[in-house]
Design a protein around this nucleic acid. Structure first.
Lengths: 185, 185
DNA sequence: ACCTGAACACCGTTCAAGT
DNA sequence: ACCTGAACACCGTTCAAGT
């Protein structure tokens, strides 16, 4: 049962879906994402795209919503099975995996976090990271002086890695960050 | 004694200087840097700007050349006075200081490193970072499996920090990165 | 209430003409 | 050899008109 499905006209609903599908296809095509091209591909006017997604971030978040939801769910699953530090490390690896295949997913994560933090306190992503950090703090393995925003900023480097040496470098650097997040000895 | 001052027409030399000065002024003004605006401010045609600086990176590097040179020199000075890990930490702080005041300096550093690494092996900045890392490796305090490019990528987060909470967050996160660069225990 | 798409604004980049 | 600046290309964004 969807929460309060705002009554929308049928054509609006379908247009929205077509825009998201077109955006996904354009992004997958690899070249830079042009909003007008997405509108054209979706078979809608540019204005319609802007009506549904006022900003680029809005669109990205929607395109990668399922992935982001999965990442959030993964955080809890990992916490249930591993110690917090290992869970954090594994979660980073998952983020890197997603980012390697769908480079936009990181932008969606960041946009989501920015929105989260701009809103009340947190949202899905910020909460997931906070849970990982809190568990580590409680266990004494993660330094207490970091918050979710710190972590998101730090892993933002992933989006700057050249796709060519992504796999080699991404994991490696994530390990360095994890070590930096440990409680200093 | 400048190395092989390529013979240039006097007007070209002066135009180049005026473009750099105009760019500096535009950047200091805070708003986004528009190339045509720089050309106009410098009193030259757009084509002249492109003749001297084919890419945006070329211009940024030139604008922040003195700062970047200072950063490079600082690395050696710090190494002479402190243990490598402390030197690295202090050097990071210096980078952060520059970046806080002149946000473009980080882009120049990155552009420079990218160019460095694209060229033979290194250049001024890459060399400075490599010296810091080598010293730490020799002392056994810095992990052996990192190179200059890793470090530049990691500190690239600085450019993403909101100017409002830059000072609080920048140093803090640099400490985390330094801890991550230590030899694991 | 929503959609369309022409039109506007803007900015990077080029290139023919000039000195 | 270098400079100028009009002109082109491109893309995001808006808005009057239509359904």
């Amino acid at each position: 049962m969807p929460v309060a499905p705002s009554p929308r006209r049928a054509d609006a609903t379908e247009n929205r879906a077509r825009i998201v599908a077109a955006a996904r296809a354009e992004i997958a095509a690899g070249t830079d994402v042009k909003l007008n091209a997405i509108a054209q591909r979706a078979g809608v006017g540019q204005g319609t795209l802007y009506r549904h997604f006022p900003t680029r971030a809005d669109l990205l978040i929607e395109v990668y919503r399922a992935d982001v939801d999965e990442l959030v769910a993964t955080a809890d699953a990992l916490l249930a099975e591993h110690d917090p530090l290992t869970a954090l490390h594994r979660w980073f690896d998952r983020v890197a995996e997603y980012a390697a295949v769908k480079r936009g997913v990181l932008a969606a994560v960041e946009a989501g976090t920015r929105r989260d933090l701009a809103a009340h306190s947190h949202g899905p992503i910020g909460d997931a990271v906070t849970r990982l950090l809190d568990a580590g703090r409680a266990a004494g393995t993660i330094r207490p002086d970091v918050d979710a925003r710190d972590v998101i900023i730090l892993i933002g480097y992933l989006s700057r890695i050249d796709p060519l040496d992504f796999t080699e470098r991404a994991r490696h650097l994530l390990t360095i960050i994890v070590d930096g997040l440990r409680t200093p000895v």
